[in-house]
C-alpha cells in the first residue's frame, strides 16, 4: 500500500477552484518534489495532506490514516505525518530543546528522560547538538529551519512534508538545510516537498510532479522530467528556472 494516496481531490476557496482533481500515489521511502508556479496549487495540495486545509471532494490516505476534519483522527494522523514550513514557526518563548520536547511530552506522554534523549538525538541528526539551550532568535534562519526539521523528527513521523522550506533563506543558508533533507531522504524517509530548488528536485527526488492551474500537468522520474519535459508549460517553466 502506498504511504500517501491522493485520489481526485478538489478544493475551492469560494468560487475559486485551486485544486481541480489531483491524484497522486507515493510509495514508502519515496521522495516526491512538487514544482510549479505560484498559485498552481502545490502548497495547498501539501497542506491538504495533513489536514491544515480542508478539501471539498476526493480522498487522501496517508500513513494508514484517512484525512478528514475530525479533530481526534487528525491528531492521530499528525503524529505520523510531520510538516516543516517556510517560516520555520519555532516557538519563540521556548529554547531549542523545549521546542523539540514539547509535543512528544504532551501529545504522546513520552517520559522526560526519554524526550530529552530523543531531542538530543534529532538535534545531532541536523548537526545542532550545541544549540540545545539556545533560543530561536539567537539562531540563523538556516539553523532555525534545521531545528524545525528536528522538532518534526522527534515525533518519529512516517511521512514528512516540506513546504518551501528554503524560500525564506539567504542562498548561503539554503545549502545546510538541503543537506539535512538529503540525508533524511537517503535514510529512507517518505518525503513530499514543495520546492523552487530545481537542482534538489532533479538530484534527490525520485519523482517530480509539475502542477499547473490546480492540476498535475506532468509527472515522472525527476531526471527524465527535467531532461525532456513533454508539455509546453513545463518546458517554459524549466527554461525560466534555468535562466533565473
Amino acid at each position: 500500500m502506498p504511504a500517501v494516496l491522493i485520489e481526485d481531490v478538489h478544493k475551492s476557496y469560494g468560487k475559486l477552484e485551486v485544486l481541480k482533481g489531483v491524484s497522486l500515489s507515493v510509495e514508502t521511502g519515496q521522495v516526491v518534489a512538487l514544482i510549479g508556479r505560484s498559485g498552481s496549487g502545490k502548497s495547498t495540495m501539501l497542506r491538504c495532506i495533513n489536514g491544515l486545509e480542508a478539501f471539498q471532494s476526493g480522498r487522501i490516505e496517508v500513513a494508514g490514516h484517512v484525512v478528514d476534519q475530525d479533530p481526534k483522527r487528525l491528531r492521530a494522523l499528525r503524529k505520523d505525518v510531520g510538516i516543516v514550513f517556510q517560516s520555520y514557526n519555532l516557538f519563540p518563548h521556548l529554547t531549542v530543546g523545549q521546542n523539540i520536547m514539547l509535543s512528544p511530552r504532551i501529545t504522546k506522554n513520552v517520559p522526560q528522560a526519554e524526550a530529552l534523549a530523543l531531542a538530543k538525538d534529532v538535534l545531532a541528526q541536523v548537526g545542532l547538538s550545541d544549540k540545545f539551550d539556545s533560543y530561536p532568535d539567537n539562531l540563523s534562519g538556516g539553523q532555525q529551519q534545521r531545528v524545525a526539521i528536528a522538532r518534526s523528527l522527534a515525533m518519529q513521523p512516517k511521512v514528512m512534508l516540506f513546504d518551501e522550506v528554503t524560500s525564506a533563506l539567504d542562498p548561503e543558508l539554503t545549502g545546510e538545510v538541503l543537506l539535512v533533507m538529503e540525508k533524511l531522504a537517503k535514510g529512507g524517509m517518505t518525503m513530499i516537498l514543495v520546492t523552487h530548488e530545481m537542482n534538489f528536485a532533479r538530484n534527490v527526488a525520485n519523482t517530480t510532479v509539475f502542477m499547473h492551474q490546480g492540476k498535475i500537468w506532468e509527472q515522472g522520474p525527476s531526471r527524465e522530467l527535467f531532461a525532456a519535459p513533454q508539455t509546453p508549460e513545463l518546458q517554459g517553466f524549466v527554461k525560466a528556472g534555468a535562466q533565473g
Partner: peptide, 24 residues
C-alpha cells in the same frame, strides 16, 4: 502560523493555547 505549527505537531487546540499562544 504559530497555531498551525502547534496543530501540526498533533496538539489539541487547548494545548496550543496553553503551550504555544498564552505566554507570547
Amino acid at each position: 502560523s504559530q497555531l498551525e505549527a502547534g496543530l501540526s505537531l498533533a496538539m489539541t487546540r487547548r494545548q496550543v493555547f496553553q503551550h504555544v499562544v498564552l505566554m507570547p
